[in-house]
Amino acid sequence: MTKRILLFICLFAVSLPAQAISRYNTPSLTCSRIQNILQTENAAILRYPSPRISDLTLYDIYVSHSRYCDFGERGATAYVPAKDTRQCKVLECKPVSDQENGR
């Protein structure tokens, strides 16, 4: 009986749709819109042009809270350009250093 339940759970999990992550170009959005997207979706890929190298697009995954980071990471303050400001405050997942772990 427990094997049937386990099989059902595995089949059910496989049949669920994958959660896609949205992508946004920050220069076309206001800072408040970017922050609203992160609060609503919890995580998104934000893209923007490199300030130093023309024709290079930079991107990363940004989150609304550290709990959306992988194990061993934490949310660190970062800034992305927006339509209305050059520095829109967001959170980016960064590895937790050994010092922060108390080692």
Rank of each mutant, 00 (worst) to 15 (best):
G102L: 14
Y24P: 02
M1Q: 10
A82D: 15
S28T: 08
P27W: 06
N36M: 14
D84L: 07
G102E: 03
P51R: 06
Y68C: 00
Y48I: 01
Q87C: 07
L58A: 00
N36P: 03
L38M: 09
V63Q: 09
A18S: 15
I53A: 10
A43W: 04
D84R: 06
V96M: 04
R86Q: 08
N101A: 10
L6Y: 10
F71H: 04
N42R: 14
Q35P: 03
L6G: 12
S32K: 03
F71N: 13
L16P: 02
E92P: 01
H65T: 11
A20C: 05
K3R: 12
P49Y: 01
A82E: 15
P51F: 01
L91Q: 11
T40V: 09
T30G: 02
E100S: 11
T26A: 13
R74Y: 09
S66R: 08
V80I: 10
T26L: 09
L7Q: 15
S97P: 14
E41C: 05
L11P: 05
I9T: 12
Y62E: 09
S66I: 04
Y59H: 02
A13D: 11
S28Y: 03
P49G: 03
Y62V: 05
Y48M: 05
L38H: 11
Y68R: 05
L56F: 13
C69N: 06
S22Q: 09
V96P: 08
I53L: 15
P49V: 12
Q19N: 15
S64V: 11
R47T: 10
T85D: 00
L38G: 08
P17S: 09
N42H: 09
Q35K: 02
Q99I: 12
T2E: 14
E73M: 12
N36I: 02
A20W: 09
E92L: 01
I53G: 04
R23A: 05
C93M: 01
H65V: 02
R103P: 04
V80C: 10
Y59T: 04
C31I: 03
P49K: 02
V14T: 15
S97V: 11
R74I: 00
T57Q: 14
D84N: 12
V90C: 01
Y62T: 07
C69Q: 02
K83N: 13
K89I: 12
Y62W: 06
Q39A: 11
E100N: 04
S64R: 02
I9Y: 00
C88S: 04
C88Y: 07
P51S: 10
I9N: 07
V14Q: 06
D84I: 01
C93S: 08
D60Y: 06
R74P: 03
C88V: 04
C93G: 03
I34Q: 07
E41H: 08
Y62I: 02
L58W: 01
Q35M: 15
I61N: 03
N42A: 12
A13Y: 09
R47E: 05
Y62S: 08
F8E: 05
L58K: 00
L38K: 13
I34F: 04
P81H: 08
K89S: 14
L56S: 06
A82Y: 13
R4D: 06
F12R: 09
L58P: 00
I61P: 07
Q39M: 07
V96H: 13
I37Q: 05
N25S: 06
A78C: 07
V80E: 01
P81Q: 05
N101D: 02
Q35L: 09
R33G: 06
E73I: 01
P17I: 05
A43N: 06
G102H: 01
